Simulated assay, not measured.
Amino acid sequence: MTQRKATLIGLIAIVLWSSIIGLIRGVSESLGATGGAALIYSVASVLLLFTVGFPRLRKFPRPYLVWGSLLFVSYELCLALSIGYANTSRQAIEVGMVNYLWPAFTILAAIAFNKQRANLMIVPGILLSILGICWVLGGEQGLDAAGMLANLQDNPLSYGLAFAGAVIWAAYCMVTARLAGGKNGITLFFMLTALVLWGKYLVSGEAAMTFSYPALIYLLMAACAMGFGYAAWNVGLLHGNVALLTGASYFIPIFSAASSALLLRTPLGLSFWEGAGMVCAGSILCWFATRARRSPAG
Rank of each mutant, 00 (worst) to 15 (best):
V242Y: 09
C286P: 01
L238E: 12
M174I: 05
L268A: 10
M174L: 05
G275T: 03
G275R: 01
T176E: 10
V203P: 01
T187Y: 05
L188V: 09
F211G: 05
L238A: 15
V203S: 08
I254P: 01
W273L: 01
M174T: 07
A166C: 04
L262K: 11
W233K: 07
I168M: 02
N241H: 14
A261S: 13
S271Q: 13
V175C: 04
V279E: 00
A231S: 14
M174K: 00
Y172T: 00
G240L: 08
S204F: 03
I254M: 14
T187G: 07
M278P: 13
N241D: 15
F288T: 07
M226G: 07
A222Q: 09
L195P: 03
A207F: 05
P253R: 08
T290H: 10
S249H: 09
Y218D: 08
L220K: 02
L179Y: 09
I252F: 05
A164I: 03
L237S: 11
L244R: 14
N184C: 11
M191C: 11
S249Y: 08
Y159I: 03
I217K: 01
T290S: 15
W233H: 08
V279Y: 04
C224H: 07
F272G: 01
S271N: 13
G199A: 09
I252D: 00
N234E: 12
M209F: 07
G182Q: 08
E274M: 15
Y230E: 09
I284F: 06
L268E: 03
A257F: 06
F163A: 12
S259L: 03
A162V: 14
S260R: 04
Y218L: 04
A248L: 13
H239Q: 14
V175G: 03
A166P: 01
V196Y: 06
L216A: 05
S260E: 01
F211R: 06
A194E: 04
A225P: 00
A166M: 04
E274I: 04
G269V: 03
A281K: 06
T246D: 09
